[in-house]
Design a protein around this nucleic acid. Structure first.
Lengths: 216, 216
DNA sequence: AACTACTTGTGCATTTGTGCACAAACCTAT
DNA sequence: ATAGGTTTGTGCACAAATGCACAAGTAGTT
């Protein structure tokens, strides 16, 4: 097995497999085949095997994969065996929802700081954290060794927030603002664009007028 | 120009171009080149032209694209010239944030119904709407001719909500629950998985130990 | 009216990703 | 031991997406 370039789509799928394996493990399932994983997450069995093959040989021929083991390996591939503290900038409705999102905790993420420059929001309690002014960012980032920040501010403020995050030493940014950000090459940036996802739906729904749903 | 299969990645980018053009238009920019669009959203100029070429010839050689026109065409491609009413199921923090998200309104989406089966949430006001019990769904969907629903409930309830949406005639679903849903072929389903996006970041950050940041 | 500077649209080559099909390996039963 | 039924891992072929490079077309200038 050579270490070659891994497609991003493969990483996305491994993350999904990982979560599915977590479910199986909780149900007490011991062994699983690529066919079962494939059916569970909606891809082809060959795809499952190919994706895993980028990282090693985790299964046993004629048997399948041990759920606990594979769960562990996928976590390791994704670097989830260490905890990942996060900071969220923007304490509006979206920032609030992300800060309290249970799905993050299950996967090893924990929000350790929430920032906003709106004076009416600073000091507001969000579960056991309170909203801090941006000036507190260096302190909290250093204290918890934070590497990843989440941007949940309006588009107009997003670039400024990204710059501030980078200045404070963050190396990964998850951006929810609907705008394209400029960041240096060494920063990992991902955009989650809520409207874009809806627009892919509206495009596909529109296409139906043309592509008759006969076959395929 | 033949109508052939359009890559989903192309649609994603056209949605991003569309939003960028909206920005330019608001700034009063009249003409834009594929190079400028490319720089603005972080792709290659050839990619911009190829993407648009799937749908027609919108530019003028030697000149570029008229911003207002291209904005209009991209909106039309994405089917955004008609309004899209939405329903949101799940009035937790995420459902609340999505129901009040400004980014949707800018693009022609409007939430016309919010549902939850938690009695403590029913009746709660969210801006000018109030949380309704799921039984009200048929009425609201019919009244506003809703086609798209957003799932913002915990993973354990998501499949049930999807089934209910489909039974009520929705044809597009945007799922925020971290679980793979089973839906019939004629339903358009998109998953927005918040943890998966973070995990792609953690994977990439982990890779840096191996891939020395020399070139590229 | 010819020349220069631009920019689009696209044929072609390249790169990247997916799926098939089968050998290799494993387990159980006889 | 051997045979039969499974399931993985992977070589190879195919499909899809991207990038290059240039002809075709436009606007302005001399």
């Amino acid at each position: 097995m050579k270490t070659l370039r891994v497609p991003e789509a493969t990483i996305t799928r491994i993350s999904v497999y990982s979560r599915y394996l977590e479910q199986l493990d909780r149900k007490g399932v011991v062994t699983v085949s690529s066919v079962e994983i494939a059916e569970g997450v909606g891809v082809s069995p060959a795809q499952v095997r190919k994706d895993l093959a980028y990282f090693g040989e985790f299964g046993t021929r004629g048997v399948g994969y041990n759920v606990k083991d594979l769960r562990h390996y996928t976590s390791k591939i994704l670097n989830l065996n260490e905890p990942w503290p996060l900071v969220v900038v923007g304490a509006g409705n979206l920032g609030f929802a992300l800060s309290t999102y249970k799905g993050f905790n299950n996967r090893g993420f924990s929000v350790v700081g929430i920032f906003d420059n709106d004076l009416t929001k600073i000091g507001k309690k969000i579960v056991d954290l309170e909203v801090s002014p941006p000036e507190k960012m260096p302190e909290i980032i250093a204290q918890h060794k934070v590497k990843i920040g989440i941007i949940a501010v309006p588009a107009s403020a997003a670039q400024e927030v990204a710059d501030l995050m980078i200045k404070n030493g963050l190396v990964g940014i998850l951006n929810f603002a609907p705008v394209s950000l400029n960041v240096p090459d060494h920063i990992e940036l991902r955009n989650v664009d809520l409207s874009v996802n809806l627009e892919i739906l509206t495009f596909n729904l529109g296409m139906r007028q043309f592509a008759s749903r006969g076959k395929e």
